[in-house]
Design a protein around this nucleic acid. Structure first.
Lengths: 221, 221
DNA sequence: TTAAGCCTTACGGAATTCCGTAAGGCTTTG
DNA sequence: CAAAGCCTTACGGAATTCCGTAAGGCTTAA
């Protein structure tokens, strides 16, 4: 059972029920932070004191306010924490429903569970805690499709970059020039056209406008 | 002071603090619903019983689950409730941060307050309650720009429709044909080009792709 | 080493978007 | 009513995107 738990959630006023549930399940110490930077500091301190956390429950989106933050959102915090070789488990607790985003949390950030904030999320969280404790991954059923292999479109970082440039209003020529300057390959207009064509087919888009609209909805950019 | 309050919020587990605050401010009856349809029914019943609610606090986004709903999101509920001639006040309590969306809540739906869910939203809600009680409007400072007149780009429904079509992958020709079929004017390709050109200038977009990306970010479509 | 396969690039033409000009119609105003 | 102003539409040319073909280079496998 998780004894020492760190919670990062900017809406601190709605963590009461979660705390309660954790205590019921045997947690002994719960630390709640409203900023990712704070969470990171608490994490580091516990590590140095050789009394590390064994669970992090983190939201993804944190509102930016006047306090300048290094880690601006949950995924920054997770990336930072994964730099340290500790067996801490990570449960993400968020309203994010774009499957590609959730997918990359598991694949790139190696999280242990994703609990989707919903009417049933308290039950989901309970399941997540039990599943993660047995070293298995958990994902809320509403977004389980995120791990479906059939959803696995092989999109590379190059494609993401390309789509971002496109959505920033760059013409193919401009993208080509910039790629050449930055030694990103392939960089010819022709190759860029070919890539975009492939992406259009992949996402069943009629044209570049449509393509950008679709990938924006998917949360790819 | 608000005696009878209706709350519509699908994350029912995080309304505890809100309830508490309402009771402290003199509320006598608080009804919490997790679905817009339920909220509508409760509202109607209270109206029929001649013991109507004097305040609605509603979220905007409601997760769709297996239960089939007529009113799918908060704005549907608000629109429905505004059909009845009752002096009920409406406070929207949401994470939506796209200014155009918030703007239209005040302008089209005639809401009384918008409280942005954040670290400080309990304080904001408190202010909102007091302000609304004096028949004035309240908006959380983080999104106050939504009511800034300078933000008031005069975009018509026609423009929105046009942008939607564009983001759906229609070519200018296809949009023209469809507008002609549906007697939407202007419908010529030339006029559509001119409109899009105007929108591109308005939103400082380089081309159609950029334009769609920008208005999607703004929440206009 | 040679053949096959894949990737990158070049090129050209069709389609579409972008942009300026101008004609015709409708409304407003004096 | 006439003039002015705005809106819609048409048209044409430049720029860009879309799409097919093909050449050249690099890697892989026999």
């Amino acid at each position: 059972m998780f004894k020492k738990v760190l919670i990062a959630e900017d809406l601190g006023w709605n963590t009461k029920k979660i705390e309660q549930q954790l205590f019921e399940k045997g947690a002994e110490e719960i630390v709640i932070t409203e900023y990712c930077d704070d969470a990171h500091l608490k994490f580091l301190k516990a590590l140095r004191d050789e009394n590390p956390f064994d669970l992090l429950i983190a939201d993804l989106s944190f509102e930016q306010d006047h306090r300048e933050q290094t880690l601006k959102e949950g995924s920054d915090l997770i990336a930072k924490i994964r730099e340290y070789p500790t067996p801490i488990k990570i449960i993400v607790f968020s309203m994010e429903e774009r499957l590609q985003r959730i997918r990359s949390l598991f694949e790139e950030q190696n999280i242990d569970a994703y609990v989707f904030k919903s009417r049933t999320s308290l039950e989901d969280l309970s399941s997540a805690l039990e599943t993660v404790e047995h070293n298995k991954r958990f994902i809320s059923p509403q977004v389980a499709a995120a791990l479906d292999k059939r959803q696995s479109l092989d999109i590379e970082n190059y494609d993401i970059l390309l789509l971002k440039k496109l959505s920033d209003g760059c013409s193919n020529k401009e993208i080509s020039d910039e790629f050449k300057k930055n030694a990103i390959r392939p960089s010819s207009i022709s190759s860029i056209e070919k890539r975009l064509n492939r992406l259009r087919i992949l996402f069943k888009a009629n044209n570049a406008v449509h393509l950008v609209a679709v990938v924006k909805d998917l949360g790819l950019i």
